[in-house]
C-alpha cells in the first residue's frame, strides 16, 4: 500500500483527486439541474414530487448517493490539505507589492473563497431540503385523489415556500454566482491536472468550460429568481408577473 498512499498524498496525487472529484461533481450538477427543471412544469409540482420520490427511494440512486458523498468529501478534504500545504509554501513574509492581477485571473486565484461560499450554501441547502425530507420528515404530503402520489412528500411546496424568502433567494443567487466562477476555472483546470492538455483540443475544453459555468450557474439561479419574482405563494404564475417582467426588462 505504501506506493499508493505515497502517490495520493504527493502534491500531484492530491491534485489528481481534486480533479477527478471535481469533474465527477460536474456530472452531478448536470443531473441535478435537469431534474430541477421540472419545477418549471406548472403542474402543481406533480412531476417534481414524483421525481423527488424516485430519487429519494430508488435503491440504485440511494447507492450512487454514497458516491456523491465521497465526491464532495474528497474534494473538500483535498482542498483543505492543499491549501494548508500551499499557505505554508508561500511563507509568512508576504510581498509588500504584488500585482498578480496582471498575470492571472481573479477566479483562478480565489477558488478557496468561492468553494467556501458554495460549502456554506451546500450546508443550508442540504438542511432545508435533504435533511427535512430524509430524516426530519416534517415535509407535508402531497395529498389529493391519486393513491400513487398522495403519500409523496410535497417538496415542490417546500421549494416554493423557501424561494419566497428574500434572504434565501439572495443566498442561492450568491452561491450560484460563486459556483459559476468556480467552474469557470475548475472545469478546464480539471483536465489540465489529468495531463489532458493538447493544442488540438485544449481551446475547446476551455470554451466548453466557460459555457458550462454560465449555463449551470444561470440555470440554477433562475429557479429561486423565477419563484420569487413571478409566482404567488402556491407557485402559480402571479397576477402581476407580466408587470414585474416589464420592470425587470426595463432595468436592463
Amino acid at each position: 500500500m505504501s506506493w499508493i498512499s505515497k502517490t495520493f498524498t504527493s502534491s500531484i496525487g492530491r491534485k489528481i483527486i481534486m480533479s477527478l472529484s471535481g469533474l465527477f461533481l460536474c456530472t452531478f450538477l448536470v443531473v441535478h439541474l435537469i431534474g430541477n427543471l421540472q419545477l418549471f412544469k406548472h403542474d402543481g409540482g406533480a412531476a417534481f414530487n414524483t421525481y423527488s420520490h424516485f430519487m429519494g427511494t430508488n435503491p440504485i440512486i440511494r447507492t450512487i448517493e454514497w458516491g456523491l458523498v465521497l465526491g464532495f468529501g474528497f474534494h473538500i478534504y483535498e482542498a483543505l490539505m492543499l491549501t494548508r500545504r500551499n499557505k505554508a509554501a508561500r511563507g509568512s513574509q508576504g510581498y509588500v507589492s504584488n500585482h498578480s492581477e496582471q498575470n492571472s485571473e481573479w477566479t483562478s486565484r480565489n477558488m478557496g473563497i468561492l468553494g467556501t461560499i458554495i460549502l456554506i450554501f451546500l450546508i443550508v441547502h442540504l438542511y432545508n431540503f435533504f435533511w427535512r425530507a430524509r430524516f426530519a420528515g416534517d415535509i407535508p404530503k402531497m395529498g389529493g385523489a391519486d393513491p400513487l402520489t398522495r403519500d409523496y412528500d410535497n417538496l415542490y411546496m417546500a421549494v416554493v415556500d423557501s424561494f419566497h424568502i428574500w434572504w434565501y433567494v439572495l443566498l442561492y443567487v450568491a452561491a450560484q454566482i460563486s459556483l459559476g466562477y468556480h467552474l469557470w476555472h475548475g472545469f478546464r483546470s480539471g483536465f489540465q491536472t489529468l495531463g489532458l492538455n493538447h493544442r488540438k483540443y485544449t481551446p475547446a475544453i476551455k470554451y466548453i468550460g466557460y459555457a458550462f459555468a454560465v449555463l449551470v450557474s444561470a440555470g440554477f439561479a433562475s429557479m429561486p429568481l423565477y419563484f420569487f419574482l413571478f409566482t404567488n405563494a402556491q407557485g402559480e404564475l402571479a397576477a402581476n408577473a407580466s408587470a414585474v417582467l416589464q420592470s425587470v426588462a426595463a432595468a436592463f
Binding site: N86, S104, S108, M111
Partner: peptide, 14 residues
C-alpha cells in the same frame, strides 16, 4: 519537490 516544501499547482498560470 514536495520534500523541499514547494506548493501544489492550482493551474492559475501566473
Amino acid at each position: 519537490m514536495d520534500k523541499e516544501g514547494f506548493g501544489a499547482c492550482t493551474n492559475i498560470g501566473s
